[in-house]
Design a protein around this nucleic acid. Sequence first.
DNA 1: CTTGACCCTCACGTGGACGTCAGGTTTTAG
DNA 2: CTAAAACCTGACGTCCACGTGAGGGTCAAG
Lengths: 122, 122
Amino acid sequence: MRIGELAARAGVSVRALRYYEEQGLLTSTRSASGQRHYTQHAVERVTFLQRMYEAGLSSRTIAELLPCVDSPSAETSDAALERMAEERDRLSDHIEELIRTRDALDGLMATNRAHRETLRTA
Amino acid sequence: MRIGELAARAGVSVRALRYYEEQGLLTSTRSASGQRHYTQHAVERVTFLQRMYEAGLSSRTIAELLPCVDSPSAETSDAALERMAEERDRLSDHIEELIRTRDALDGLMATNRAHRETLRTA
DNA sequence: CTTGACCCTCACGTGGACGTCAGGTTTTAG
DNA sequence: CTAAAACCTGACGTCCACGTGAGGGTCAAG
């Protein structure tokens, strides 16, 4: 498929796909005229990339993880696996922090609603 | 206390505090010479702001929530409370997404380690 | 009374993941 | 065969939470 279709299927912009390639996160074969072509597999690759971005990883960091994704347990993936474990732990900490933040918001909302009840009863 | 001390206590930069004030998220009294002075309460205010930023809220969004924080159940906080509930839900969804991402990373790591075992045994 | 730490207000710089316009080629539908 | 739609490569624009000087007052200590 061409870049427009991949963009539609993966739910991202064409510009984003070109950017991913520029960052070494996504490869494509080129037709004689220079147009990018992708396989079905590219869709899940892009989904994976989106997931990593959402987790707060930078393009550079994602690039460091890719050997681990593409060729499991190759010699070169030693560092990648370590990096992945590192990012996983960072993500885990972040999740816990966000949960505490959600609790804080819940507390604030409860306080407000309690006050509201007080006013209505008075 | 002055701005330097608040920065140290809250663990943020002096620049950040001035920025928060510029965005209407933090107020200060000024001395005759124009220097900012804060009360103890400012420390927790800044901590709250940091928490909101970490949750992915923008300055504008945080500003919309503040009436709810400052004067619980005032007339003006109706919209604020609704906004807060909205952001809480958004945060909750985000947390779940991050957990799925962590699971994905765990799966990748497991696959890699399994391959590694296979290679060692062979 | 001077030195050094701290404070002030502009105001431009930064990094990252794209958005967007320019100017041109290629593919597809009719 | 033609026009629209889709694609290409630069390259500058955007947003946002600050970082970072520039240039100049302020305050406690010696």
